[in-house]
C-alpha cells in the first residue's frame, strides 16, 4: 500500500512538472497584464528545439537552454503584437499557438523516431532521497524537476517581495499610473512576456528531454492550455500553482497506476479524460468557492498606449 502510494506520488510529481513550469511563466506574463494564449505553441517549440539540440550536440545543458530560449523568442512575437502593435491579445496568442503547432509539425518531421540525444534521468538527491515515501515521491526526479522546486519560491519572491515585482504587478493593474510614475511600461511587459515564454520553453524541454525523451508531434497534448487554466486556479500566485499542477499530475499518474496494476476500476478512456475534466472543475471551483478572491490583474489583456 505504502509502495503504491510512493509509486503514484512519484509519477504524479513527474507528470506535473511541465504544467508547473508553464504555469509559472504564464503567471509572470499575466501579472504584467499580458495574456498569452500561445503557451501550447511555445511549449511545442521548446520541446522540438530541445530535442533537436540534444540530438545535434548531446549536451544536456545546451539542449535545455535551446528549448527554453526558443520559447522565450517565440513569446517575443506575441510581445511585439500585444505590446507594440496593441492588437487583440486573445487572437495574437491563438495565432502563436497555431504557429507553434505548424512550425513544429513541419520542422519536426525528420526527428520523428530518432533516438533522443539527451535523456535527463531521475537523479536521487543524497540523503533526502532516502526519506521513506517523501524521498521516493519528491527527491528521485529529473534535475529539471528540482529546478522547478527552486523556481516556485523564487518566482513568488520576485513577484511579491522585490521592487521589480511591485512594478510588474502595478503595470498589470494600472499601466497608465505606472507610466505617469516614470516607469517604462513597455520594457516591463516585454520582459514579462519573454519570461513567460522561457517558462513554457523550459516546460517543453522537460517533456522532450526528461518526461518522454524524443520528439513526437503535438507531444504536449494540451498541457499548455491546462497551464493557462491553472493560472486562474492559482489566483496568479506561484505558490498556489503547485497545487493545481500536482492535481493534474496526480490524475495523470492514476492512468499509469491502473495500467501497471492491471485493474480497471474506471474505464481507461475516462481516466484519460480526467486531467482535462479536473482542469475544468478547478476553474468552476475557484469561482464558487467561499470568500472573495483575487480575480486577476485588472489590466489583463488591455493594451497600453499613452494617447489612451
Amino acid at each position: 500500500m505504502i509502495e503504491d502510494l510512493a509509486f503514484i506520488g512519484q509519477i504524479a510529481v513527474k507528470s506535473s512538472i511541465a504544467v508547473l513550469l508553464a504555469t509559472l511563466g504564464e503567471i509572470v506574463a499575466e501579472r504584467s497584464g499580458i495574456l498569452n494564449l500561445g503557451v501550447e505553441g511555445m511549449m511545442l517549440t521548446g520541446a522540438l528545439c530541445a530535442a533537436a539540440a540534444g540530438i545535434a550536440t548531446g549536451n544536456p545543458i545546451l539542449a535545455v537552454a535551446a528549448g527554453t530560449l526558443a520559447g522565450g523568442l517565440l513569446a517575443l512575437v506575441h510581445g511585439f503584437f500585444a505590446v507594440t502593435l496593441r492588437v487583440n491579445q486573445v487572437l495574437s496568442g491563438l495565432a502563436l499557438t497555431l504557429l507553434g503547432m505548424g512550425v513544429t509539425s513541419f520542422l519536426g518531421r525528420p526527428l520523428i523516431g530518432i533516438a533522443p540525444g539527451v535523456r535527463l534521468r531521475a537523479v536521487p538527491i543524497p540523503g533526502l532521497a532516502d526519506i521513506p515515501v517523501i524521498g521516493d515521491i519528491f527527491f528521485r526526479q529529473s534535475p529539471l524537476a528540482y529546478l522547478a522546486y527552486v523556481l516556485v519560491p523564487l518566482c513568488w519572491y520576485w513577484i511579491f517581495h522585490t521592487g521589480t515585482g511591485l512594478k510588474i504587478r502595478a503595470v498589470g493593474e494600472d499601466a497608465a499610473a505606472v507610466d505617469a510614475a516614470g516607469i517604462d511600461v513597455f520594457r516591463i511587459r516585454y520582459l514579462c512576456t519573454f519570461a513567460g515564454g522561457l517558462g513554457a520553453g523550459l516546460a517543453g524541454a522537460y517533456l522532450s528531454l526528461s518526461y518522454t525523451p524524443g520528439w513526437k508531434e503535438s507531444m504536449t497534448g494540451g498541457q499548455g492550455w491546462v497551464a493557462i487554466a491553472m493560472v486562474i486556479f492559482a489566483t496568479w500566485n506561484p505558490l498556489r500553482a503547485v497545487v493545481g499542477a500536482f492535481l493534474f499530475g496526480g490524475l495523470t499518474a492514476l492512468q499509469f497506476y491502473f495500467q501497471a496494476v492491471g485493474v480497471e476500476l474506471v474505464p481507461a478512456y475516462v481516466l484519460k479524460m480526467l486531467p482535462y475534466l479536473l482542469t475544468i472543475a478547478v476553474m468552476i471551483l475557484v469561482n464558487v468557492g467561499p470568500g472573495r478572491r483575487f480575480g486577476g490583474p485588472a489590466a489583463l489583456g488591455v493594451p497600453f498606449s499613452r494617447e489612451g
Binding site: 512575437v77 495565432a95 497555431l98 503547432m101 505548424g102 518531421r109
Partner: peptide, 12 residues
C-alpha cells in the same frame, strides 16, 4: 503542415 504555418502567418 506548411499550410498550418501559412494560416498562422495570415492571422498575424
Amino acid at each position: 503542415s506548411i499550410s498550418m504555418v501559412l494560416e498562422a502567418v495570415l492571422l498575424f
